[in-house]
Amino acid sequence: MKIEVLKLSDEKGRFLLRETSSAFVNAIRRSAMAEVPKMAVDYINVYDNTSSLYDEILASRIGLIPLTADLNSFILPEECECGGEGCPSCQVSLTLTAEGAKMVYSGDLFSMDPSIQPSFPDIPIVKLADGQRVMIEAVARLGTGKKHAKWQPAVACGYKNMPKITIKDCDKCGKCIDECPKQLLSLNKELKVKDLMECSLCGLCEKACALGAIEVGVEEDAFIFVVESDGSMPVVELMIRSAEELGKKVLELKEDLESIQKDAGVAEIGQRRRT
C-alpha cells in the first residue's frame, strides 16, 4: 500500500491510498471510529443543580465534551485490576462549581489530574440565571466508540474510490460543463477536468453527452480517505492508534488459532469461543 498525504492538520486529514482494497480501508475506518479508546465523562454526581437543565441533560452535555489525555497512563475499566469499580489508574474526576448569573464553559471544569483537560475551554455547558447554582463531580473513564459516541475520537471518517474520467472523441459542445454540479470541467481548446479528486461520481456529465465521449469511472485500488478528529487527539495519533488496534485484533486471532493448532483438537474448534 502507498500513502500520499493530501492535507493534514491536527483536526483534519485527507490521504490518498493506492494499491489496496476497500476491505482494508474500511477496516481502518471502523477501527478509528469504534476501537480507539479515548477519555470521556462517564457519569456525574450532582450535589446541587438549580439550573434550568435536568441533571440528565447536564450529564449528557458534559459527556460529549472531548477531553485530551495521556492515553498511555490509563487503562480501560474492563481491563483494570479494580474490576471496573474505579481506581486512579482507570478514572479521573473533574469538578464543576458555578453560580449565576453567568455562562458555564468547559474551561470551568477543574480536573484532579492536570494531564486531563477539556480539549476546548470555550464549550458552553449551561447558562445560569441570577442565583442558580451547579455543583457537580464528573467522572471520566476510557471507553471505545462502539459503546457510546462520546468515546468516538474520529468524526466524519470515510473514503471513496479515486475517480477516473476518460474523454475521447469529444466534439466540444460544452453541454457537460453546465451539467457538472461541482463545476469541475472546463473547455479551452480541449475538454479538461480541473480537480479530479473533487468529483463526486454523480455521472451527470455522462448523461449530458450525446456522443458518449465522456466516461466517469473509478480506480478500483485507489481510495481517498478523509478523517476528522473530535479534538481529543491529533489526526496523526488517531490514525496510528487505529492501525495499532487493528493489529492487536489480528494478533489475537493468530494466537487463538495457534493454541488450537497446538491442542490438535480439530473437533474442538467449533466449541471454542473468545469472550
Binding site: I57, F120, A156, D230
Partner: peptide, 19 residues
C-alpha cells in the same frame, strides 16, 4: 441550550454558537 455536537457527524459545534 445549543447542542454540544452535531447530531449526525459528531463534530463539536457549540463553541461556534455564540460567535
Amino acid at each position: 441550550m445549543f447542542p454540544i455536537r452535531c447530531f449526525t457527524c459528531g463534530k463539536v459545534i457549540s463553541r461556534y454558537w455564540e460567535e
